[in-house]
Amino acid sequence: MLPTPSTCHVCFDRVYEPAEDSYLLLDTLSSGSETAFLQDRFGDATSSPPVVLEVGVGSGVVLAFVAANARTIFGRHDVLTLGTDINSFACKAAAQTVRHAVNEREDGRSVFADVVNGDLASAIRPRSIDMFVFNPPYVPAELPDLSRHETYNTMPEGKKATSFEQDSYLLELSYAGGADGMVVTNRMLAQIPGILSADRGIAYVLLCAQNKPDIVKQRIREWGPGWMAETVGSSGKKAGWEKLVIVRIWRSLK
């Protein structure tokens, strides 16, 4: 079992704390079947380095895990990691998590770019991402009022701490997904074909049972010829709504 990156420096009052969903992503990305798939796709050591983007990095635990275990996951350590988050506190915390996890390695360190503050992948150059990872706000709950975002996205002027209301708002961003928990995920899915590299791009998206994963997968397959969507990891309570799945989205190379 590969070590989980340390997130002990992260303030979980305003940044999502790694939980069952995060750990399911770690387990799935490092599973034998996924590493075999990824090494088949990216393992040629002379091909260009896999560029990994995680949207909504939160604490950074997932991106840090990929960065620190690049050789196990991709079969090479010339991997570039990049993240985005809508929460500026998460951006800073996640960058620290990834840097620390990479630096802990004594050799074969991969390359970490940055975590930028943004809405999903709206600032990502088209066709530039090889592996995309998304642990969305998937809970069916009302979306927070984003008109407060600019005020709540930074430390209040002249203060050293955030308020309870500000922290609550920032945490809501990390889990509340609107109707069916799919409002944010649907916006992200619409961006995926545009950001993935044409020849080898691949995406991992986490869904919960209430997101209706079978319908989501079917819709992805209807994006066009060659698009595939399969469940490659699952966990959680078998009967409860919290049951989680990881869907792999890719275009068949054949």
Binding site: T84, I86, S88, C91, K92, A95, D114, V115, V116, N117, G118, D119, S122, A123, L146, S147, H149, E150, N153
Partner: peptide, 18 residues
Amino acid sequence: EYAVKEGVANFLLPGHLV
């Protein structure tokens, strides 16, 4: 113009926040 503060670039647009 997108601001960079403390090394973090901010790509949020007013249109994202409605």
